[in-house]
């Protein structure tokens, strides 16, 4: 094997990536070849320098930060079609549709029951109206019916609320 071939293997040797037999061959060659040994020492030195650099947190230079921000601002916003495609994804569309349907149902239900500015008749009042017209019926309990009707004497104003 020539020195050129050994130098191609020096990076992998330095990082321990070679199989045991090749690793032993390269080791032997470095011990006997001064030029290849110098090449190996340069690679080792560079590796150590990089390791030391990653070991501590370094702040990015302000010029780099400024460049990154400028690039982000300068990026174009996605097109209408791209946005639409994003919104029409099933994962987004299904819950949105369900939510809109729920809002529509609630709005409609609310409209039926409490339309604005329309008075509401009290359910209790309608029951008393029924009771008073059917008091002669055998199905009514006298003591309870009298109690309900007399309870309404001071509540008649609450029959209809605006």
């Amino acid at each position: 094997m020539t020195c050129e071939k050994y130098r191609e293997l020096i990076i992998d040797y330095t990082h321990g990536e070679l199989d045991a037999a090749t690793d032993a061959t390269v080791f032997e060659h470095i011990q006997s070849c001064a030029a290849c040994k110098a090449e190996w020492q340069i690679e080792t030195s560079l590796t150590e320098t990089l390791r030391a650099a990653y070991a501590t947190e370094l702040e990015l230079p302000m010029s780099v930060v400024a460049t990154v921000r400028q690039t982000v601002r300068g990026q174009r916003s996605p097109g209408v079609l791209t946005s639409l495609r994003t919104w029409l994804r099933p994962a987004v569309l299904a819950p949105t549709a369900a939510m809109l349907l729920l809002i529509a149902v609630v709005a409609r239900y609310g409209q039926v029951h409490t339309p604005p500015n329309v008075p509401q008749v009290s359910a209790d009042y309608l029951v008393r109206q029924h009771l008073v017209q059917t008091m002669g019926s055998q199905s009514n309990d006298r003591a309870y019916a009298e109690y309900l009707l007399t309870s309404a004497n001071d509540q008649s104003q609450n029959a209809v609320t605006p």
């Binding site: 409490t114 029924h130 059917t134 019926s137 055998q138 199905s139 609320t161």
Partner: peptide, 28 residues
């Protein structure tokens, strides 16, 4: 202001009233 018609039906023992009205929404 709520005009109401009450119709009372019965079978001799059981009774029910049918109320019909305008100018108001469903009962509270």
């Amino acid at each position: 202001g709520v005009d109401t018609v009450q119709l009372v039906y019965g079978d001799g023992l059981r009774t029910f009233s049918l109320f019909e009205y305008t100018n108001a929404s469903m009962p509270r």
